[in-house]
Design a protein around this nucleic acid. Structure first.
Length: 210
DNA sequence: CTCCCGATAT
DNA sequence: ATATCAGGAG
């Protein structure tokens, strides 16, 4: 049996060749736009989030804009991403807290980010990784599913998975690793009908061997 | 644990 | 018809 660490390195090597352009797909031009886009991305494809933010950011782009927006107007603009009432509340609430507690800037540390309504560890790690060069393992629905199938972890608890992966993935590969798994999840290791026959890492996968 | 929720693939 | 999509709050 291969050591988990060597298995991870091999998986990264293969997926890097398979997905050379793996990177964040949520369109944004600054930390605040990334925060809004990531809140909207809950249980929604990032493709749809980009369609919505493309229009949304034409009218509203800053925390100052969002604390003044009519909640009904915001709900209407983000309606197609689902959970639109909660997401509108979170975007407005986060904007308010950013202005009142954080001097108008998106926080650059985990503790402060987690105080924002609608922001959990997944969203916080996306922002820390991409806006502040503070690498984190982003554990989303794809990462939960794929790391369990591969046999890298044996739990559905996102926090346990995050810390477990921090142990077995080299820190300089954390951000890359999550993007590779997400690309892999979209193209091969889908939730419902995974393409194990053509999967490039099936040799390292417990699920594919069953 | 349940609830939030529209769009899309199967 | 139903499962799933870059989750988080209560």
């Amino acid at each position: 049996m291969m050591k988990r660490d060597d298995k991870v390195l091999k998986i990264i090597e293969i997926l890097e060749k398979e997905f050379p352009d793996a990177k964040i797909r949520l369109n944004h031009t600054n930390p605040f736009e990334l925060l809004v886009a990531t809140i909207l991305s809950a249980q929604c494809t990032d493709e749809r989030v980009n369609i919505v933010t493309n229009e949304l950011f034409k009218k509203y782009r800053t925390p100052e804009d969002f604390v003044q927006v009519d909640p009904n107007e915001l709900e209407r603009l983000i309606y197609s991403t689902g959970y639109y009432k909660a997401k509108a509340r979170h975007i407005i609430g986060s904007s308010k807290m950013i202005l009142e507690k954080f001097n108008g800037n998106v926080p650059d540390n985990m503790e402060d980010l987690l105080q924002l309504p609608g922001v959990g560890r997944k969203t916080a790690n996306v922002i820390l990784s991409h806006s502040f060069s503070k690498p984190g393992i982003v554990v989303d629905t794809h990462v939960i599913r794929i790391t369990n199938r591969l046999g890298l972890v044996n739990t559905k608890d996102p926090v346990k998975i995050e810390f477990s992966l921090m142990d077995i993935v080299p820190k300089d590969k954390w951000v890359l690793f999550t993007h590779l798994l997400i690309s892999h999840g979209r193209n091969y290791c889908t939730s419902r009908k995974p393409k194990c026959e053509s999967c490039p890492i099936s040799a390292y996968c417990d699920f594919a061997r069953k």
